[in-house]
């Protein structure tokens, strides 16, 4: 599949086009231009490295939404075996914006849950662009409680612009569904590992992201409001999104510095989609490491450290009352 390049990667795109042309020429050419090709390939890699070394928060936001970025299903097939998808919330519907089921991770049973976006137009609509309705969150909770019952660790993948702001979603209690998940995940008696793989869109992301380890991919974002939404409120125009992205502090490295996430998982040069296999290998190791640490803890220890971690969130000062 041909790589889709973002606006700020146009210089790389031009080089890659040139390389493509040369390869085409070489096929029926007597002159050997492979040296030239490998030279250009090197140059393209260097250029990508340079661009990615100084991405702005807004550019990272665009990488996090890259149409070829690996989604939850890609991680499921890349990291797990024997996936048995489980459907529905048992009350209203099966929300395709959140998928989940049983699987094996390094031979051991786990419950995998994640937001799922679509690849083509038809699938995007079916999956509502990864924006869950209440039944999606209730399905996620049902699977988590099932995992708890059978003492199976929960692994979640977060990638959503946000919970869906629709009429039906409100009628069926979007707020209650999200709040309930926060309440239950804070006390779920099994290890919970959460990874932001793309967009961590506000409450819709948090509703499956309360756990013992919360990690972010290097070029993912996690925010209280989308940069566009923030810009619309503050500057009355979505065009200031890049300023908003800067102000909100939504990148993995910034959030790690602020102590709001536990780990940054490095991505291949040019982002996860440029080398999905390398991405899978890094992710597999990262989850395996976390799981090993968490499985060594007793349930009480696990819940206590999860609770303490949640209580640490927030920055304020204390002054003696007047």
């Amino acid at each position: 599949m041909k790589t889709t390049f973002l606006d700020f990667e146009q210089s790389v795109a031009e080089l890659e086009n040139k390389i493509e042309e040369l390869r085409y020429v070489q096929d029926d050419s007597a002159v050997d231009i492979s040296v030239e090709i490998s030279h250009l390939e090197k140059k393209s890699l260097e250029l990508t490295k340079n661009i990615y070394a100084k991405l702005t928060p807004w550019q990272i936001s665009q990488v996090s939404r890259h149409p070829q970025r690996p989604y939850t299903y890609d991680y499921i097939s890349g990291l797990f075996t024997d996936f048995q998808e489980l459907h529905g919330d048992r009350a209203f519907a099966d929300d395709l914006a959140i998928v989940g089921g049983l699987a094996r991770f390094n031979g051991q049973s786990v419950m995998v849950i994640g937001h799922q976006k679509g690849r083509d137009t038809k699938e995007k609509i079916a999956r509502n662009f990864g924006m869950p309705r209440p039944e999606g969150y209730r399905k996620a909770l049902r699977l988590m409680k099932l995992a708890e019952k059978f003492n199976i660790p929960v692994i979640t993948f977060v990638d959503t612009p946000g919970a869906y702001p629709g009429i039906g979603a409100e009628e069926r209690g979007q707020s209650e569904a999200i709040g309930r998940n926060l309440f239950e995940m804070a006390q779920l008696k099994v290890p919970v590992i959460c990874t932001i793989i793309g967009e961590g869109g506000s409450g819709g992301a948090l509703a499956i992201a309360v756990g013992d380890v919360v990690q972010m991919l290097q070029y993912s974002t996690y925010s209280v409001i989308s940069p566009e939404g923030c810009a619309t409120i503050l500057w009355k125009t979505a065009e200031r999104a890049s300023d908003a992205a800067e102000a909100l502090g939504i990148t993995a490295t910034r959030l790690k510095t602020l102590g709001l996430i536990d780990k940054v998982v490095p991505e291949p040069i040019g982002g996860a989609h440029r080398d999905p296999q390398a991405m899978m290998a890094t992710m597999k190791k990262s989850i395996a490491d976390s799981l090993k640490v968490l499985k060594a803890k007793s349930v009480d220890e696990l819940l206590e450290s999860r609770f303490d971690r949640l209580m640490e969130h927030g920055k304020f000062k204390e002054e003696a009352a007047a």
């Binding site: 995940m185 804070a186 909100l248 602020l258 709001l260 949640l310 209580m311 969130h313 927030g314 920055k315």
Partner: peptide, 23 residues
């Protein structure tokens, strides 16, 4: 809702308040 100007800190208050309610 959550206070934008404190970024993700504000989002985390949602998890924090619900965690204490479990106690």
């Amino acid at each position: 809702g959550a206070r934008m100007m404190e970024g993700l800190n504000s989002l985390m208050q949602m998890a924090k308040t619900n965690a204490i309610l479990t106690k």
